[in-house]
């Protein structure tokens, strides 16, 4: 697959077990550059495990992952999980500066300020994260994940718990990323937002990739039919 899609992030026969439970079962997947891939699936389908493997946080029990033929380096990856991954007792700006230091960004202050401006956090950057609303935290989390300009961004249900304002802001941010041809993989339960944002739709069920389609080829009703059991298409490459 690497010859067909140079630079693509590839999973080959990836299986992951938690004890006797199989979370992922022989997943083959190639994520192409500039693609906004939406990962749908019910609870326990293996979405988070798949994202954690892509983020290099979990080693698969079997199978391999590669980026352009090599194991991906961590600075190429940005990851947003269920949790904010921020220090509550530090200010928003201090959080960004701290992570900028870990990534060796220079000048860190300039990049942190730039992201605060981009994500509408300039006024609140001096306040402790403990006092942030859910929406502000999520924006800061996204800013943290994009701090080092990763080649691929992994989002695990980023809309969870957001109010309408936060939802709209995050949608705008993600649409901007899509327009900038960032490679993104986003796990979500919400079919509507998945269809709105994605350029490619995947459905994971019981650890298996059961649906893989280009966004432009399907409608909402077709996606609903596929999601709720009437799968009409085989997984690409199988």
């Amino acid at each position: 697959m690497s010859e067909r899609f140079p630079g693509a992030l590839e999973l080959s026969r990836v299986t992951h077990n938690y004890g006797s439970v199989t979370a992922l079962n022989s997943i083959d997947l190639a994520l192409h550059r500039g693609e906004f891939c939406v990962l749908l699936g019910p609870n326990g389908a293996g979405k988070t495990t798949l994202l954690k493997i892509l983020a290099t946080l979990v080693r698969p029990t079997e199978g391999a992952m590669s980026w352009g033929g090599q194991f991906p380096e961590r600075h190429q990856i940005g990851y947003v999980s269920h949790r904010s991954m921020l220090y509550e007792e530090l200010t928003g700006f201090e959080n960004l500066l701290f992570f900028a230091g870990l990534y060796g960004l220079d000048p860190a202050t300039q990049r942190a300020n730039q992201l605060c401006d981009e994500f509408g956090l300039s006024k609140s950057k001096g306040y402790k994260v403990a006092g942030y609303s859910r929406g502000m935290r999520q924006r800061l989390t996204l800013a943290r994940a994009l701090l080092h300009r990763p080649k691929i961004l992994l989002l695990d249900e980023p809309f969870t718990g957001l109010d309408q304002h936060g939802y709209r802001t995050l949608t705008t941010v993600l649409k901007t990323l899509k327009s900038k041809q960032r490679t993104v993989m986003m796990a979500t339960h919400n079919l509507k937002e998945g269809l709105e944002l994605g350029s490619r739709i995947l459905i994971l069920d019981s650890g298996r990739l059961v649906y893989d389609v280009e966004r432009k080829t399907i409608s909402m009703s077709e996606l609903e039919a596929a999601y709720f059991g009437n799968i009409s298409q085989e997984v690409e490459g199988e």
């Binding site: 290099t56 946080l57 961590r74 990851y79 949790r83 991954m85 220090y87 870990l102």
Partner: peptide, 17 residues
Amino acid sequence: QREQEQGTFQAILLSPV
């Protein structure tokens, strides 16, 4: 404990450190 509760443990593991 704090790193685990706030998820920053993973954030550090994700960094190139």
